[in-house]
Design a protein around this nucleic acid. Structure first.
Lengths: 139, 139
DNA sequence: TATTGTTATACTCTATAACTATA
DNA sequence: TATAGTTATAGAGTATAACAATA
């Protein structure tokens, strides 16, 4: 009876935790790199097309009043603007300003974690990883 | 010239984002299930052995004053206690109460995301996933 | 009536700075 | 002097409730 020295020496759950934690820390660091919080970046990068607040709240899984505040801070920094929705007098369309576009682009450059992870794998390994992650997620 | 219909039809970066996002949401939901924030759970589950505040701050990558407040809230809910450190008059040792142990255990039950992910994979697939995640992380 | 968004409020997370007590 | 922890403070994230305007 011997103890395995292969990959099973550590648990999948540990490996997942380590990876997720690293991902999250890198994401937060990249946001901080642009002097933005994760919440602010999450809104900003979802504005490739202008859109309403409620769809943002739904997609991000938070209350609409939360989006109001985050957008207000982004607007006060000149990264987004609120426009009236010609099709619905109640709604506002949020759009990135040119400066908001620039910050969003710089964030994409700064967040290199996923790109680097990808680059460390061969084409076959990438396919394997996608299959395994999808299977692990179920549904 | 045909378009691939295999796993490469989606990107590794997308798969990683989806997985991490699902993991994070499940973690937060499990914490909320115990009426605790993620920050509070992060402290609570690291108290299997009693320990000082500064080591918690270092491990969690935050300021000591932050730990002071989180511990104060956990203490006010009866989940941890602050004890004097017999070996260092400046330090306090934080320990879980029996109720804190119970909440920590219930959190472990509630957070079934990683366990479920593991259970969807065969032994060989688990080994593959560990290898790929470690390689993707580099170093 | 239902929906979109805002405002007021309250609690939590978080860091910085200043502080006390001890090493 | 350096370290462990606290307190005060301020900005940000978050939800709930009440609200105005519009559909």
């Amino acid at each position: 009876m011997t103890v395995s020295s292969g990959p099973t020496a550590i648990d999948v759950e540990d490996a997942l935790y380590t990876f997720v934690d690293s991902y999250d820390r890198a994401y937060e660091a990249a946001a901080a790199n642009q002097q933005l919080s994760v919440a602010q970046i999450c809104v900003l990068i979802r504005l490739d097309q202008r859109r309403g607040m409620s769809s943002l709240a739904t997609e991000l899984g938070c209350d609409a009043s939360n989006i109001t505040q985050i957008v207000a801070r982004l607007e006060s920094r000149g990264l987004v603007i609120r426009q009236p929705d010609p099709a619905d007098g109640r709604a506002r369309l949020i759009a990135r300003t040119p400066e908001g576009d620039a910050v969003s682009t710089r964030f994409d450059s700064a967040f290199d974690f996923a790109r680097e992870a990808k680059n460390r794998l061969s084409t076959e390994e990438r396919d394997q990883l996608i299959v395994l992650l999808r299977k692990a997620l179920g549904g």
